[in-house]
């Protein structure tokens, strides 16, 4: 973190291209020749139409996919060269959907976030209990996401918004420097969207967390992000503040349709609506 902070850059993406291995050679790149920085402590939103490579890009940032060419640096190191459990202490991922078929409790689920930090003997790896420090970190994460009261409940019994907060708590228990969120507000009712949006802002402020979120919802990105990156066909169309990127012109270029963009009455940020 210290490295990332001093340079002001959390993640540096340098000429990264990616194509799924089973794609035919003739098909275009999923992500093509991308270069950008994720600044330390910012909330960066990635938007774009379906199939623009948003989720693939997030997986590349998480180290879950390897670039076909180019490189991604965390601080001074290539993420491909960082041992998986060490990377997991710096970058946490909240997936789009989370289905738990086994009756795990909320507390157990959040404690799984401590996995990359576990220590112990060969045997203790299997059956060792969590340390006091693990419990403290998990508890802290649950307080920040306001799920402490749910500790003993089964994850499978929760509502979508509650489950999303539990998954964010699990990611926070990793004590990451960078949090990657894939469509954190999809499938959520408006009240839960507001909740998650506020939570992301609070985490940025209080944990100095760097957040990258993927969203297909332009208004979510506009309201919750410091900067927005607009992707089309795996390439960057625009990157900058919401004011700079979310304009009728850029939206026409990306989505091929006309929309109304005005200022949000409270935040003054761009607001996108359908034409009447």
């Amino acid at each position: 973190m210290s490295v990332a902070c001093s340079s002001g850059t959390a993640l540096r993406v340098d000429r990264v291209s990616f194509r799924y291995r089973n794609d035919q050679a003739g098909r275009p790149w999923t992500v093509e020749d991308l270069s950008f920085d994720v600044r330390a402590g910012e909330v960066l939103g990635i938007v774009g139409p379906n199939g623009s490579g948003k989720s693939s890009l997030l997986k590349l940032l998480a180290g879950l996919l390897r670039p076909s060419s180019g490189q991604i640096r965390l601080g001074s190191q290539w993420i491909g060269h960082i041992a998986p459990h060490l990377l997991a202490r710096s970058i946490a991922v909240v997936p789009q959907e989370y289905v738990q078929v086994f009756p795990f409790t909320v507390a157990e689920t959040v404690l799984m976030g401590r996995f990359p930090h576990r220590r112990g003997s060969w045997w203790g790896m299997g059956i060792g209990e969590e340390s006091e420090h693990d419990l403290r970190q998990a508890h802290q994460a649950m307080v920040e996401t306001d799920v402490v009261a749910l500790a003993g409940r089964l994850v499978s019994d929760l509502s979508g918004g509650e489950r999303q907060r539990v998954m964010i708590a699990r990611a926070l228990a990793q004590e990451p420097a960078v949090l990657l969120l894939d469509e954190p507000m999809a499938f959520l009712d408006i009240n839960h969207q507001i909740e998650i949006c506020a939570l992301i802002r609070r985490l940025q402020r209080e944990r100095q967390l760097t957040v990258v979120l993927v969203s297909h919802d332009l208004n979510v990105a506009s309201q919750s992000c410091d900067r927005v990156m607009m992707l089309k066909d795996g390439r960057i169309v625009q990157i900058g503040s919401p004011m700079e990127t979310i304009t009728p012109e850029s939206l026409r270029a990306v989505y091929g349709c006309d929309v109304v963009v005005d200022a949000h009455p409270h935040s003054g940020r761009p607001r996108v609506t359908m034409p009447a």
Partner: peptide, 19 residues
């Protein structure tokens, strides 16, 4: 056994947790 717990979160999440 501990890794099996994490595996139930889904494969990608398990990988992002260092497994």
């Amino acid at each position: 056994a501990h890794a099996l717990n994490v595996l139930t979160l889904g494969e990608e999440t398990a990988r992002s947790l260092g497994i």
